[in-house]
Write a protein that binds this DNA or RNA. Structure first.
Length: 413
DNA sequence: CTTGATGATTGGTA
DNA sequence: TACCAATCATCAAG
């Protein structure tokens, strides 16, 4: 039998609603600023050039031009810039600068390359998938989660309301999760494109290697994925809270309907010598009572133990149901006989075998096969295969006292 | 509020 | 694994 799913984190009374609009980090999205950019103006990107060795006149000239570029007018500068770009030494110089850059500052960050995927993130992903939040299908996932949640104990019929409520809330969480995720992804790609464009543009005026761009993109992605982790975390939290509430609600006991109790009692008392419904019988009963099979099992478990504990207390009930069943039996048989017509104190339910207060057949005959007078809904095939085992224990300990008014039963207590 | 009824849960057993 | 026995938690009548 399945138990409740483990509820992690908040207890049922945590008092936290489904604060889905307040994911930590969601607001930070808009406040993510691009990392400090190199100034795009003329004198940017010249680091590492001051120590230019003047063993070559060309290089010296170029550097000189670069250094003085800001002193010039815009037109002049543009012209010079163009000239520089066209200079035959430009590509070589540029690549040298890139190399220097690569070997100095940036190489330090080089050490922290590709980390393995964050185990926490993996766990969150798995959980969201399992809960049907991150799954591909909108309805399917949620339904699966609900069925997983409900399979533990089954639900009373009136809990279908809670069920749909749960489904609705879960899909709400799902929707929010997906819109937020989309937002993040969009923002991430937008931001990445923006930065890449900037860097590409700057690469015309300063040494920006493709590797550097790559690294920058990786950094941005890391930042965004940490925000995403927060989103996933809070989504998980919301699902957990929802779940615990749902299960809590299920835990609240509701009495079965009168009709359901009647059906169960009918079966119980008409099989009193062996009140162990088979799987099939349980299924049938569950269907009739609109409860789950495990609820049927619970009911019979409780009933057996309580009956056994205090048989006399159930005497009246037993009589009642014996009468009822007998009535049904006689009517089905087409007999005009009424149950009372058998006379006071004499419920001679000849056709109803163990139906009557569990008095086992004295001749050791299998009581379960006296089906003639029983409700046709419980046909012979529904008898429990465990009969042989349970018969002994149940019969020996539970031969009930004779009903009031019933003469000389074979058991007295 | 008290109390008995009752559905569910849990730990143990065969 | 089904069942028992004890117990818990809630319902509902008084």
């Amino acid at each position: 039998m399945l138990q409740q799913q483990p509820i992690t984190g908040n207890g049922p009374n945590s008092g936290r609603g489904l604060a889905l609009n307040t994911h930590p980090g969601m607001h930070t999205l808009n406040s993510v600023h691009p990392p400090p950019q190199h100034r795009p103006d003329g004198d940017a990107g010249l680091e590492g050039t001051e120590n230019g060795h003047e063993n070559r006149r060309d290089i010296g000239d170029i550097l000189q031009q670069i250094m003085t570029i800001t002193d010039q007018s815009l037109d002049e500068a543009q012209a010079k810039k163009h000239a520089l770009n066209c200079h035959r030494m430009k590509p070589a110089l540029f690549s040298v600068l890139c190399e220097i850059k690569e070997k100095t500052g940036l190489s330090m960050r080089n050490t922290q390359e590709e980390e393995p995927p964050d185990p926490q993130l993996v766990r969150l992903d798995n959980m969201l998938l399992a809960e049907g939040v991150a799954g591909p299908e909108k309805g399917g996932g949620a339904a699966a989660a609900v069925s997983a949640a409900t399979s533990s104990g089954g639900m009373s019929p009136d809990s279908s309301l809670e069920h749909s409520d749960y489904k609705q809330k879960l899909s709400q969480i799902r929707t929010i999760y997906h819109t937020e995720l989309e937002k993040y992804e969009q923002a991430c790609s937008e931001f990445t494109t923006h930065v890449m464009n900037l860097l590409r543009e700057q690469s015309r005026t300063r040494p920006v290697s493709p590797r550097e761009i790559e690294r920058m993109v990786a950094i941005i992605h890391r930042k965004f994925s940490s925000i995403q982790t927060q989103l996933k975390q809070s989504t998980c939290e919301a699902v957990m809270i929802l779940r615990s509430r749902f299960l809590d609600a299920r835990r609240k006991r509701r009495n079965f309907s009168k009709q359901a109790t009647e059906v169960l009692n009918e079966y119980f008392y008409s099989h009193l010598s062996n009140p162990y419904p088979s799987e099939e019988a349980k299924e049938e009963l569950a269907k009739q009572c609109s409860i789950t099979i495990s609820q049927v099992s619970n009911w019979f478990g409780n009933k057996r133990i309580r009956y056994k504990k205090n048989i006399s207390k159930f005497q009246e009930e037993a009589n009642l149901y014996a009468m009822k069943t007998a009535m049904g039996a006689t009517q089905r048989e087409g007999s005009p006989q009424t149950p009372n017509s058998t006379g006071s104190g004499s419920f001679s339910l000849s056709g109803s075998a163990d139906l009557f207060l569990g008095v086992p057949p004295v001749n050791g005959e299998q009581p379960g096969y006296h089906m003639g007078a029983q409700d046709s809904r419980f046909s012979e095939r529904l008898y429990s295969p465990r009969e042989s085992r349970t018969n002994g224990t149940w019969q020996e300990q539970n031969t009930p006292p004779s009903p009031p008014g019933s003469e000389g039963s074979d058991n007295s207590d």
